[in-house]
Simulated scan of single mutants.
Amino acid sequence: MAAAPLDSAPAEQGYFIRFPFNSNALTPEYEAHLARLAAVLSSAQLQNSCVKLVGHTDSIGSDQFNMRLSKTRAQRVAAYLALEGGVAMERIQTAALGEKHLIKGLPGPHPLNRRVEILARHNTGKGCK
């Protein structure tokens, strides 16, 4: 089964970090995105905010494999933000959804489904988790 080209996707909502097939490796392009995000999260206006990272996969592979891969993708982004960007791990929450939430309007194997979604969260005063 051939992958669809990236420009075949409808408009997206939210912000995503993309991944190569069957991988949790960050590309230099997305490392640069995460470095900028870490700088923004370190700003005075957002230093008390939280971020939720939700890992996803395409539909190729078993449910169990995809759940593990989506988890390692979210953890990889969290580790980058913490180790390279200086964002405290207490401000980062991760979740894994495997192939359960594909992007609406895209076929399951589409490469845009291989992502970590970044969601802003307010710190409730009881922490970010």
Results as ranks from 00 to 15, higher is better:
residue 125 G to L: 13
residue 25 A to R: 10
residue 116 V to P: 02
residue 74 A to I: 08
residue 24 N to F: 12
residue 42 S to N: 11
residue 54 V to T: 15
residue 88 A to W: 06
residue 128 C to K: 09
residue 127 G to V: 13
residue 33 H to W: 00
residue 16 F to L: 07
residue 9 A to G: 11
residue 3 A to P: 03
residue 19 F to Y: 15
residue 93 Q to M: 11
residue 57 T to R: 01
residue 17 I to P: 05
residue 8 S to Q: 12
residue 103 I to Q: 09
residue 27 T to S: 15
residue 43 S to I: 01
residue 66 N to C: 11
residue 7 D to P: 07
residue 89 M to H: 03
residue 8 S to E: 14
residue 55 G to L: 00
residue 5 P to R: 07
residue 70 S to Y: 02
residue 124 T to P: 00
residue 47 Q to C: 03
residue 33 H to M: 03
residue 63 D to R: 14
residue 102 L to G: 13
residue 122 H to T: 15
residue 121 R to W: 12
residue 120 A to L: 13
residue 76 R to W: 09
residue 18 R to C: 00
residue 110 H to A: 12
residue 57 T to G: 09
residue 93 Q to W: 06
residue 8 S to K: 08
residue 43 S to F: 01
residue 26 L to T: 06
residue 80 Y to S: 07
residue 82 A to W: 09
residue 40 V to A: 12
residue 100 K to A: 15
residue 52 K to M: 06
residue 111 P to M: 07
residue 46 L to M: 03
residue 60 I to R: 14
residue 124 T to V: 01
residue 94 T to M: 10
residue 116 V to T: 13
residue 121 R to Y: 06
residue 29 E to G: 07
residue 15 Y to P: 10
residue 3 A to L: 14
residue 55 G to P: 10
residue 99 E to T: 11
residue 72 T to R: 13
residue 115 R to N: 09
residue 104 K to N: 10
residue 71 K to T: 08
residue 84 E to W: 00
residue 54 V to F: 08
residue 66 N to T: 03
residue 12 E to R: 06
residue 119 L to D: 09
residue 125 G to H: 05
residue 69 L to M: 15
residue 3 A to R: 13
residue 94 T to S: 00
residue 14 G to F: 06
residue 105 G to M: 11
residue 129 K to A: 02
residue 14 G to A: 04
residue 105 G to Y: 08
residue 115 R to D: 02
residue 53 L to T: 05
residue 88 A to K: 04
residue 89 M to S: 13
residue 44 A to I: 09
residue 109 P to Y: 05
residue 22 N to K: 15
residue 26 L to W: 07
residue 36 R to S: 08
residue 84 E to Q: 14
residue 32 A to Y: 05
